[in-house]
Nucleic acid binder design. Sequence first.
DNA 1: AACCAGGCGCATA
DNA 2: TATGCGCATGGT
Length: 273
Amino acid sequence: MNVDFNKNTIIFSGIDTLSVPLTLDCGQAFRWSEISDGSWHGVACGKAVDISQNGDKLIINGCFDEGDEELWAEYFDLNRNYGRICERLKADSHLKAAIEAYPGIRILKQEPWEALCSFIISQNNNIPRIKGIIGRLCACFGDDLGGGDFTFPSAERLAELTVDDLAPLRSGFRAKYIIDAAQKVAGGDVNLKKLSSCDIDEARQELIKIKGVGAKVAECALLYGCGRVDAFPVDVWVRRIMSELYPEGLPECTQDVEGIAQQYLFHWRRNVE
DNA sequence: AACCAGGCGCATA
DNA sequence: TATGCGCATGGT
């Protein structure tokens, strides 16, 4: 893989497995929108950017600082060999079908707080409305980047607020969970920094200290916000997959990359049948 | 008009 | 430990 960097463009080339549209729109992140054919706009790594793809090239347009390319490589998990992982997953016939139907999905490494807060909002909710609530959360309480873009508000910022302050979000019963999460994270009661490296069961225990965070949301925070590809979120779709296809449990080939298998199966099950 | 949405907390047994 | 219900809001 190669990197071409200048202050307005970062281009990664030679990526073994990549579909920008599938990766940005497979239900793992909620802040990307397609602004024209093949061009996606959103905010991540503290910057508003446009993202597109040309073959094995990932093209990111924005306004960058020295060293930003490393942040974006991490965001797209470019140092993980998805080609090899997918080949291994294809030992299972269902995963083979899912990967061949939707090749190139990668797991994004989002900010831990953003992932946690986003999936708190996701509970008993649908994706269009999740995006709406998160958009309003950022517009109301994030930093203004200009051009209608806002950063995701920090836990520290949200910890200053009350449930009533979140009324404009129309997030319903989730508002109290957002505030509890912000207070526990900002106050140090929950330490997000250690979740990427500590024992995964310990990480789960840490996260479910937050009101409104159960097994599913904790698993999503670990997978999408902490780079824990061994985390395995089970939502209604994955529950269906498990009962229909894997009543005896996940196949051996998913060992240690359960989260990646989950993302392919999730997207496949939601779209195909 | 009922039902559902990338669930969870709480009460009950 | 295991169920079942209510929950804010909005779309179908």
